[in-house]
Nucleic acid binder design. Structure first.
Lengths: 359, 359
DNA sequence: ATCTAGCAGTCAAAATATAGGAGTGCTAAC
DNA sequence: GTTAGCACTCCTATATTTTGACTGCTAGAT
């Protein structure tokens, strides 16, 4: 597959993909000739098309039909022709509106982001949070509720975790709670979640009074750092139904994949480091959904990689726009994190900047 | 439409619906004759079918086809022939498994319930929480977080509300928080949410220091008692795709209705008091989804009506099973509420008991 | 060499035709 | 009131034809 494409072949290939993306019917030689070339005839283009088909970039649904791009063609197309498309004013406004509120939890930001992505692109969005291990625990608060239960609030440098009600055998009276707060913070505050998981083994204090509570907190921290279904957010799954040409059967199976959060998480989790955008397509080993493309971007908050956001759409999606949205959002998230979540003046890290390439 | 149906007509009607539910193809006179009657001939049944069609209970897709039940027929069928079908052992076990954990929030219970209903019935489930007004506020805790923000935890007699981070201009130092807790509880504890909404107007204390905080808490309470999208939970929306005979177009529009939480909430909210199960069907003014039936039940915790749970399925759904599940769940919820949420020994109220009627 | 006009050949999709059969409604007899 | 019997309707499935959009090829032009 390591053919070098001539410039004209590239132009023809791009034309086919562009055409097919703008309307999903097989593209004919004459159509390309009319819209993209005025120096050569359709017959010549037919020769090129033939060659491109030979090389595996194009497919013919049947002998007397036009050409349709293969997965390889989409891949080539994205890698060679597509850059971030700048967002429209209106879209930027929409995004900014979504983020114009206070966020206290990472979860909140992530959910909102997923919504925004789906809204703007009109595709399904998926976000995975990972690497909770690097999150710094600033403070832990224990609040007594009922006589035997307490709420554990963990304040980190990237948000607040407040979803943990624990129940203890010990009676949670005010003085117990007070002491517990002091103790717990002495032990936990100032470390990252990752450190605490190992640190927890070392804690062998014979303060058996607090042992139970301690175990609960450690358990909570462990839970949060595990990769699990909890850390995958999907939005706009129904948008999958809009792909033209999809049958009900396909739609159903696609939606089922979306239900399986764990699998989805793995789909997004790209092994190849240091790329801004990752891109999978079709029914190869990595992408579970037929005739779909996944485009993902890595997200960082305060320079820490916190997860990936991705869009699942039909192969013939508006790649430029998707890239644009993912990129813009990455900036938004950083600035929110910088201003509203945390009171540090640190420069927020933004994923690599690239120029738009639009003809 | 106020015809009185003869016993034989009833039997025929029931036969048609039963047949059509078990497999959705128009039912013919001979089919009924073979399976349900051995005393009369198909010709006689044809006469009855004709009459039932005349009365609006049956519809003929075309001249030379069998009969299909109309919405009216389903209504009659449910109201006259169907009672709770007892659940299978396995199903009961599934339900009990779902509920075999600790719940601290109503929201948790509701989400789990929605999951269970959808799982067991294989239809879409919707639950609406209402009447938060009657909930008793037992205690309110303010926890300082960052210098200018605090978490408001409201402990009620039906669970804990802990999703409110507020931000204040005032610096939230420990002594402020301490005083605030005392004051807030003096004002709020022991009242129901409904009372507090009116009561809030009366509070005119010149403790301007706490005024801001007070307003926040009142705002939170108001928010929670408003009927809003937040209080509608949908589970298993994709199950709608399984209805045989649905087109992709229909599926899409159905899923769109499910997205509109507010509309859904209104759909479930039945005005007619004092009925155990409510039932809507078809595309009349109340039910937004074509060819679908909605069956709902009212739920109570500690004798207070807390909301409705419902199932949205095709007209030809297994009504008996749905009733059975809704009814069993109502009991489960009560016992959970009684044992785990609250430490009262009060007898949990259960919605009316009715005998199964199964031939 | 490279391009291109023109034409024969292909094949899906749309349109049309035909046959088959399930089911009803009616009638006349029981 | 029932029912057997038959004519009639009209959906469904299948086969057949027509159409037209493309391509691939070839032979001549550039």
């Amino acid at each position: 597959m390591e053919h070098k494409l001539s410039d004209r072949k590239k132009k023809v290939l791009r034309a086919v993909v562009d055409e097919y993306i703008s309307s999903p019917i097989p593209v004919s030689s004459s159509e390309i000739q009319e819209k993209y070339f005025n120096d050569i005839s359709s017959a010549t283009i037919r020769v090129e098309l033939s060659a491109l088909e030979e090389m595996g970039y194009l497919v013919q649904p049947h002998t007397s039909a036009g050409r349709v791009p293969s997965s390889i063609a989409y891949k080539f197309y994205v890698e060679n022709f597509i850059g971030k498309k700048p967002l429209k004013k209106k879209e930027i406004k929409t995004i900014d509106n979504f983020f114009d509120k206070k966020f206290t939890e990472i979860e909140d930001i992530v959910k909102t982001s997923a919504k925004v992505i789906s809204e703007i692109t009109n595709y399904t969005s998926v976000i995975v949070i990972n690497n909770i291990n690097n999150v710094l625990v600033k403070e832990i608060k224990i609040v007594g509720l009922e006589p035997n239960s307490a709420l554990v609030i963990i304040i980190t440098d990237s948000g607040i975790i407040k979803d943990n009600v624990i129940s203890l055998k010990k009676f949670t009276n005010p003085s117990f709670i007070r002491d517990a707060n002091v103790l717990i913070n002495k032990i936990f505050a100032g470390y990252t979640v990752g450190e605490l998981k190992t640190r927890s083994q070392m804690i062998e204090i014979e303060l058996s009074d607090f042992r139970e509570l301690l175990d609960c907190v450690i358990e909570i921290l462990k839970n949060y750092s595990n990769k699990s279904a909890k850390n995958v957010y999907v939005e706009g799954g129904n948008k999958m139904l809009n792909y033209p040409g999809a049958t009900l059967e396909q739609a159903k199976s696609a939606l089922n994949v979306l239900e399986d959060k764990l699998l989805l998480g793995n789909l997004l989790d790209d092994k190849t480091d240091n790329i801004e955008f990752s891109f999978r397509i079709g029914k190869d080993e990595t992408c579970g959904i037929d005739r779909c493309a996944i485009m993902t971007a890595k997200y960082t908050i305060n320079g820490k990689e916190v997860g990936q956001a991705g869009v699942i759409g039909p192969e013939r999606m508006d790649y430029g726009k998707v890239m644009g949205v993912l990129s813009y959002l990455s900036k938004s998230i950083n600035s929110i994190a910088a201003c509203k979540l945390i009171d540090k003046g640190e420069e927020a890290s933004v994923i690599g900047e690239e120029d738009d390439e639009e003809k």
